[in-house]
Design a protein around this nucleic acid. Sequence first.
DNA 1: GAGCACTGC
Length: 683
Amino acid sequence: MGTERKRKVSLVDVVDDDSTAKMVKTNGGLTVNNFINRWNRKPYSQRITTQIPQFVLEAVDLETRDKHRKMMVACTQPRRVAALSVSRRVAEEMDVSIGEEVGYSIRFEDCSSSRTVLKYLTDGMLLREAMTDPLLERYKVIILDEAHERTLATDLLFGLLKEILRNRTDLKLVVMSATLEAEKFKSYFFGAPLMKVPGRLHPVEIRYEKEPQREYLEAAITKVVEIHTKEPAGDILVFLTGEEEIEDACRKISNKVANLGEKVGPVKVLSLYSTLPPAMQQKIFEPAPPPVKEGGLPGRKIVVSTNIAETSLTIDGIVYVIDPGFAKQKVYNPRTRVESLLVSPISKASAHQRSGRAGRTQPGKCYRLYTEISFSNDLQPQTYPEILRSNLANTVLTLKKLGIDDLVHFDFMDPPAPETLMRALEVLNYLGAIDDEGNLTKLGEIMSEFPLDPQMSKMLIVSPEFNCSNEILSISAMVAVPNCFIRPRDAQEAADEAKARFAHIDGDHLTLLNVYHAYKQNNEDPSWCYENFVNHRALKSADNVRQQLVRIMARFNLKLCSTYFNSRDYYVNIKKAMLAGYFMQVAHLERTGHYLTVKDNQMVQLHPSNCLDPKPEWVIYNEYVFTSDNFIRTVTDIRGDWLVDIAPNYYDLSNFPRCEAKQVLDRLYKKREKEKDEARNRK
DNA sequence: GAGCACTGC
């Protein structure tokens, strides 16, 4: 996988003022021109290049005061592949073996040792480390790279490191950001010195539309054909919003070019999005097709991609970028507690990043399919940071575990809406993760250790009480990975039949359990997966996740157990354990034939991918998605009378909005009271 | 009878 090759930095690039030297205090100057590698005392085998983490290594003394051990320099990345590839390259440049002086640490893989002085890790991983090492005392310097991306983890690290810096005067923090917001960062971090490193991009000519475009998809396709017909050789990158749109565009582009016949050169039209199998993704790195005949018109590669090509993947050789100005973005509505994906206008920063993709190997052109006025007036300067667009239940749990008790006064660079924080606290309180004073409970402590949403951690932790932790582990792992069912356009019927063989009429969670069991019974065989239209990668990764969860369970002495398969309670126990985590995600089938979510009274539909038959009166759902309609996805049949047993606080009818579900529950509870009375009288 | 922006632990 080609990831962004980090810009190499040499001292001559440093163009800023006198503050440069203050940012990283140098002790005795830089030693990069020496012939002996100070890290392993061997002569350098090749000319090395320099980068900021290496500068930092040269500049600081990593020995602890007692000289007994060495502290480390950490460098965070938002993505695993980046942590991995950058660390490998830096190890190579420093001429040391990866995992020795230079290492990396990402989920499922710690490649570092007691000798490691420079460690690359994902921002999420550093946050995890802070849970056990609250002052991050193993680090002397922390470098937050790609800070402009403002991932949730980066934003939490911002606030956390500000607190840590108050307690640790010896700690140095370097924030690296390709941002226009330098002043905002500077003032947030106590007016820290600023250092500018110019980019090494070729110039990119920006072209705007004269009139606003109504149909951006059609406009993009037309522009591709126009470039191919009129412009000199060079590959094209088109940004669109999602898989379906991209596949559709690829077909249309191919057809249009084919219709032009021999008037134009040959093209290779390729789609690119994250769920595309890696082998297909690799095709974008293949060269453009050669001319049809010698001396004929040159060929062109056309890549139609989601935002994945904006940050995660870099394709060299792109000369033309087409930017319609839209992307699917996550939005969160705290009132309805729904996260959804909406096609929305991108930010100026994002538009800038997209245009930069045209100038990596030679001067390029970027066609923005909107007007210049629209660019300056309508686009917001920056994409809203993720923390303002997310459900924060898990984030709040993490912060509590990190010892941040007063969320209201926590120094967020961009504070989330109070309502979002209140919602998160409310959810955690109902789950028993925090008490009424907002303090983390013992249960909450354990929940915070699982790399899962709080609902899922809760069901996992209580599953031994329902004698089904083995099964809940498998279900959690399957729900935590991308959808495992494959449905190719040209074999939809066969795929549906294959899925039907796994279907459990009580619901999708149990269907996923069936798939996992079948996968294990067939020895994790990739060809079995292929024949049954399930995604081998997804199942492999579910297995990986499951193993990690098992290790965490063991750490807290949570036992692994199963109900005897032939017992009538086998599925009942599983469903009750799930309900113990997901009692806030229940929907009730109304007499009108619609489902209403309990307490929120949102009208929802079962997602068409469900396996239920017939429609049950009560269901729990894993996620609420708003796309072409309000759907609840991954749904399982449960019984109404379990609700009050398992979540009496939440299902306290004296504190319940008026609705059909309330009447039904009321009847159920009265009936149950009556039965209890009768049983008592019989005695 | 619809989907899967992208990440991370």
